[in-house]
């Protein structure tokens, strides 16, 4: 029996990779939707970009419009993988909110009307937990955040998860999986956080050293592939084991830091946002102050599979792929050690 999988957000790196890995399975027909066609393949050499374009049926759909209903009805879709949430800051806030929230509503409405959809997988994020000094050190799926996000991507994600829960209640016959991913890290990932780490000088919030957690892109793709091809209903955290402190990250990258007081950090962010470079939204400032860690053991138990990379390994792979291997402070220490000896 062949499956027909609808993948949203194929215009972006991770969406394209998931679509490719699903399309490689002869039993699966993949229909990709987005407002832009899948990214050019130079970076995705190992997935075979040309091959992807052949095996993937790309449909140009703006999720905010009801066109998606027709796509789902016309193609006998049985599985929907929704990965098109935008975290900014490329779009204006209102456009981003509309894309995330209205887009999800349209998609879920289409799924609800469909007789063929049997499985829905939604890529969410650990931003739903917010980041505050009142939170437990490690979130499980049932933890209630002390201060839920009230703006931006975090708020959108919370709303989207709300819609998804509502959908799951109305259509108990559909297996609904919500995956809360930590920050993606890896050679092909281009996110506000990866851009943050490739800056020549890293601004940090003075007096804070947050715990950060990453998931390697290969692991994220594998989690999405598995949940798209088997029923794993429920909500799951997905993050590499362990944490890295921001100070450890910058030391491992050998980068200089510029500690700035919290309010100044935000101001700097406003300036940088104009340059469309890095994300210094209030959620990002909170993350850079208080950090966040989640427990992914439920997902590991559900899938019967473990991540190939822990947080530290995912970060190391990212550094390697970006050539961030020269470490000046370390070279100085080694030179001094040589003198002493």
């Amino acid at each position: 029996m062949t499956h027909t999988v609808l993948v949203t957000g194929v215009g972006r790196h991770i969406g394209a990779r998931v679509a490719a890995v699903l399309a490689a399975d002869p039993g699966i027909r993949v229909i990709g939707v987005d407002t832009v066609p899948p990214t050019s393949p130079e970076r995705d050499g190992r997935d075979g970009g040309a091959q992807l374009r052949d095996s993937l049926e790309f449909v140009h759909v703006d999720l905010r419009s009801p066109d998606i209903t027709r796509v789902i009805a016309a193609c006998d879709i049985d599985t929907v993988v929704h990965m098109s949430l935008l975290s900014g800051p490329a779009l204006s806030r209102s456009a981003m909110k509309e894309h995330n929230v209205i887009g999800t509503l349209q998609l879920l409405a289409a799924c609800q009307r469909s007789d063929t959809v049997r499985r829905v997988v939604v890529r969410s994020s650990t931003v739903v937990y917010g980041s505050s000094p009142l939170d437990p050190a490690v979130f499980t799926e049932s933890s209630e955040p002390a201060e839920p996000p009230t703006s931006g991507y975090g708020k959108d994600t919370v709303e989207v998860e709300g819609f998804v829960r509502g959908f799951a209640r109305r259509r108990p016959d559909v297996a609904v999986t919500t995956l809360r991913f930590a920050n993606l890290m890896g050679p092909g990932v281009d996110s506000p956080l990866t851009r943050f780490f490739t800056q020549p000088v890293l601004p940090t919030v003075l007096g804070f050293d947050p715990r950060l957690q990453f998931i390697h892109e290969d692991d994220a793709v594998e989690v999405l592939r598995r949940t798209a091809t088997e029923d794993h209903p429920g909500t799951f955290n997905a993050a590499g084991d362990g944490v890295l402190l921001l100070s450890q990250c910058v030391r491992r990258a050998g980068r200089p830091t510029l500690p700035v007081p919290g309010p100044a950090f935000r101001l700097l962010g406003e300036l940088a946002r104009g340059l469309d470079q890095v994300d210094y939204s209030p959620e990002q400032v909170a993350l850079m102050s208080h950090g966040r860690a989640v427990d992914s053991s439920r997902l590991v138990a559900e899938l019967g599979w473990t991540f190939a990379y822990d947080t530290a390994a995912a970060y190391a792979d990212f550094l390697r792929s970006r050539g961030l291997t020269s470490n000046l402070p370390l070279a100085v220490v080694d030179a001094l050690a040589g003198l002493v000896r």
Binding site: S247, C249, R251, G254
Partner: peptide, 9 residues
């Protein structure tokens, strides 16, 4: 200096 140490969760 190289960040080569472990912290727990």
């Amino acid at each position: 200096v190289s960040g080569d140490y472990e912290v727990d969760e």
